[in-house]
Design a protein around this nucleic acid. Structure first.
Lengths: 148, 148
DNA sequence: AATTTTACTTGCGAATTGCAAGTAACCCTT
DNA sequence: AAGGGTTACTTGCAATTCGCAAGTAAAATT
């Protein structure tokens, strides 16, 4: 529990899980403006506690991709519940209705999230975080809903 | 999400929800040793964001009981998932097996937790936190399990 | 009336954080 | 193959926050 007792660790995990961020630069530019020394420190700590791990990208030796370990993937329920709570009680801009839809399909969404992280598919969980205009679908959540 | 971005807020909420703590003094003596000025500040912040509220005890004008609002009660799933994650991946002393039992009865445990908080019954959710020797049962979790 | 209990403040040194700048390795272009 | 750009950090310092010890005020107990 003490791993999340700071301003940034939870936000980094959210970016990792919900948005599809992987690299130092992506986290750094993630809106809230984390200082680079703090970001480096938090990534180290999360790695030291076995929640994430770093791997150098094969095609580009500069880039380090941060990914969730199994221990990190197991935090998915926590993050999802936080997302749901935020959607219900805070104004999170858009995507409230989508998140609250997810609540009904909690187990399916979690299974899909876990599956995607295991096979290193880091498509954003929420479409509002897919701002690059590629139009990728955000996790097939609608499809999941219908397939019950 | 930024409400929990510090070392103590989550711990206070855990004490409030899982242990049955209500008063300033209980939080202060809660093991980890929070400074009184920080505790006062965090209680104020949690109250300002509508997660808890303070009420003076009727029978003793000195005591202030901190209680969860509906918004705070809605954080129960997050805390439960954190508890489960901790039981699985960290050494939490005792009660690991009990917490992992709760995972199977997630909905029942949550319903019971919400019910108890609504009617202001602050019996500790976990027996390891009932150290006063009164021998009160810790939330009837066994009973819940059998009543499926 | 005096002491104790409870819930806080206040002041100050210590630790943490944020900001700006710098560095090193790697890639890409010419 | 040399220069410039990109990525992932580190370093130094100022500003904020935190932690500790002590103090205060109101209510209860003796």
């Amino acid at each position: 529990m003490e791993h999340f007792g700071d301003r940034w660790s939870l936000l980094i995990l959210r970016d990792l899980m919900v948005r599809g961020y992987k690299t130092f630069k992506e986290f750094q530019q993630s809106g809230e403006g984390i200082a680079t020394n703090i970001l480096a420190n938090r990534l180290q700590r999360l790695e030291a506690t076995g929640i994430i791990f770093a791997e150098v990208e094969a095609t580009d030796g500069r880039k380090v991709n941060y990914r969730l370990t199994e221990k990190g993937i197991d935090l998915a329920p926590v993050l999802l519940d936080l997302l749901i709570w935020g959607a219900r009680h805070e104004e999170t801009g858009a995507s409230c209705t989508l998140v609250l839809e997810m609540e009904k399909n909690r187990e399916e969404v979690l299974a899909e999230t876990r599956r995607r992280w295991r096979e290193r598919d880091s498509t954003p969980l929420l479409p509002s975080f897919d701002k690059d205009g590629t139009g990728r679908k955000p996790a097939r959540t609608q499809r999941i809903e219908k397939s019950r």
